[in-house]
Design a protein around this nucleic acid. Structure first.
Lengths: 201, 201
DNA sequence: ACCTGAACACCGTTCAAGT
DNA sequence: ACCTGAACACCGTTCAAGT
């Protein structure tokens, strides 16, 4: 039976979910698909391209466009949907972070574009809207990568109770940070805050 | 001549600067120090511990405390000092990100604590100040990692002029994002903005 | 106490040769 | 067109044995 790009990505996603990113190797993937390692290189140029495809597969649910809402609700909606998508796979945040940094995730580019639109509507000028959007993405990726690595320590049994504040209520904590960013964007159009801002210009 | 922890970290830092994080391997480091790979494991438990030590060495200049300033100036000062420290080494942001995520960088914990203090002074309550501080760190790490990977594409000759907005004025772009976060923190004490915020609660 | 030598169990990638 | 087999050039980590 012929090997197709789709099957490879599907098995890679399963490997990721079951064993984590460290065990998602080209050789192990090939073994699991009952092909030789070289076979994968007929379908993908290199490992990075394969990981990008896995990242985009994980991000499918996050691409559910949040239309017909205020810019701030769209930012919150996109950020929340992105986190949910990342959490649905083991090490999802780490994988997508790497693929995004390498410029290998098309869907992250899409999400970035939607966030940029929202930021523009929020009153950020065109030259800075992209950066505001990226700031949101850095936050979501950083927060979720952190969250997932803590989940793994906890699963390994290393529950330090001094850090319980960091593991409790992750949803509320995530929402708070997102709100901080939305407030920051909103501040750029809020006249009342502009006076306060002049200390930082 | 005996091998000391300090020499290993120094050579590792040099290797990082000269060839990047991909070439910072235990075997290569041992070869460069004229010892066998196993020798390194007498001084460090594993590679992660070694990388943490390198991260902390890179972060020394960022620990220059910014005392006697308003909370907002301290956030901007710490963020800027952190970025400068990361930029001084090839792949510095990637290395420190990994070490921070793994909980292996003491200095990042210190910087986090200073940012948390600043956020508290900025009016964020104790339960959320840590998160606000982390949000700043996620931003600085994300922005700088992005910046450094672009520097490498450019050095490799792949100059896409459509992305010139992203590579030009990185200092100004960085400052803008930092200001966004400071504004977000400030919004929590600004009564005028609280009315605006109620949409997101 | 500190290090060597050698092994163990892996990697990503390439490429002639097969079908 | 699609894949195998085998090689190339590596990894991180462990550990008996040496000094």
């Amino acid at each position: 039976m012929q090997l197709h790009r789709h099957d490879v990505v599907a098995k890679a996603t399963q490997l990721l979910d079951d064993y984590g990113i460290a065990d998602l190797t080209m050789r192990r993937l090939a073994r699991e698909l009952n092909v030789s390692p070289g076979a994968l290189y007929w379908h993908f140029a290199d490992k990075q391209e394969l990981l990008g495809a896995v990242a985009d597969r994980i991000l499918v649910p996050a691409s559910a466009a949040v239309e017909d809402a205020s810019w701030s609700r769209r930012v919150v909606g996109l950020g929340t949907a992105l986190r949910d998508a990342l959490l649905s796979s083991t090490d999802g945040a780490e994988l997508v972070s790497a693929s995004f940094a390498a410029g290998k995730s098309e869907r992250m580019i899409e999400i970035l574009a939607e966030l940029t639109d929202a930021a523009t509507e929020g009153g950020i000028d065109a030259s800075h809207a992209d950066l505001a959007a990226r700031t949101v993405l850095y936050y979501v990726l950083g927060f979720t990568a952190d969250e997932q690595s803590r989940l793994q320590w906890d699963a390994a049994g290393a529950l330090v109770d001094g850090q319980s504040v960091l593991t409790a209520n992750p949803n509320a904590r995530f929402a708070f940070g997102l709100k901080l960013l939305v407030d920051g964007i909103a501040a750029h159009t809020s006249v009342e805050v502009n006076a306060l801002q002049e200390n930082f210009e």
